[in-house]
Design a protein around this nucleic acid. Structure first.
Lengths: 148, 148
DNA sequence: GCTTGACCTCAAGTTAAGTTGAGCTTGTAG
DNA sequence: CTACAAGCTCAACTTAACTTGAGGTCAAGC
């Protein structure tokens, strides 16, 4: 127990603040990786903590696990990711974040002016009718959006 | 068809851009209201358009239907909402939006510095360890979050 | 040596936000 | 007055992101 390099699921769970079942889940989705002991138990390298942290942070701003997975898979599989690798990833998301921030600002500024003004008709309201799709794709089923 | 005051579901659907099934759904959830014709068909007052618009806008910034419902239920049930009523509502959300925006900014600004720095340990990283809960409560099941 | 707490796997349940489909009724244009 | 589009209801399916549970293994303390 004297601070080896390897972590058990339980350790990762308490240190990262996500449930064991969630870790299993992330692994099944290919977001994190582990190797097994002779007794078939998972062992994680320390970089898993950073990965999990990233996952949570990204999720909180509305990035889906699928997207996070894609991004994480751009990290080198063989070696431990260098600072360079992580930076590349963060730069990618920085752009996404910038986009979301400006979207939210537009909405916030539009909301108060717009909400009581009667202009909410779908084709005239500046709030509703920005060409820019906000793309906080919720969870549910959102396939067909009226097609005509 | 000569622009009466009442709208059918189909009309609301095309004018608001949401599917008929979604309108049924919103009604079941108490977000919108209709009355029925003698033949049991829904008829909506024009203010339903604004309601639906609000619903969509709020959803896009990540407010759940449950919350939207609560907010909308604060509108007067009897009379048609006045501008005052709507403004109250928009002010509430404005605060929420401000919060989210500042969260995103924190994340954006923290991410690049933080991601590669090894500080992602859950209790030290400024990014992960803000007391402020981000509360973009995703959809799934998020009940037990490790309790110890 | 046994008990107790971590682990493991796999299947099934849960929530949100709708969609899809079946089977049946309305309403309107020709 | 008869099609046929538009409505209606209700049940079941979908996706995302997990959780819960059952049934069985592993490991460390007493």
């Amino acid at each position: 127990m004297t601070a080896a390099t390897e972590l058990t699921v339980g350790q990762v769970a308490t240190r990262s603040g996500v449930a064991v079942s969630a870790l299993h889940f992330y692994e099944a989705r290919g977001l994190i990786r582990s190797h097994r002991t002779s007794g078939n138990q998972r062992r994680y390298g320390r970089d898993v903590l950073r990965r999990v942290a990233i996952i949570k942070v990204a999720q909180e701003v509305g990035i889906s696990l699928a997207e996070i997975g894609t991004a994480l898979r751009s990290l080198p599989e063989g070696r431990t990711p260098t600072r360079e690798d992580w930076n590349l990833l963060s730069t990618t998301w920085r752009d996404e974040l910038d986009q979301k921030i400006s979207q939210l600002k537009k909405l916030r500024d539009g909301l108060t002016d717009c909400i009581g003004c009667g202009c909410m008709s779908i084709d005239k309201c500046p709030l509703r009718n920005k060409g820019d799709r906000l793309s906080i794709r919720g969870p549910g089923a959102r396939r067909l959006l009226i097609e005509r």
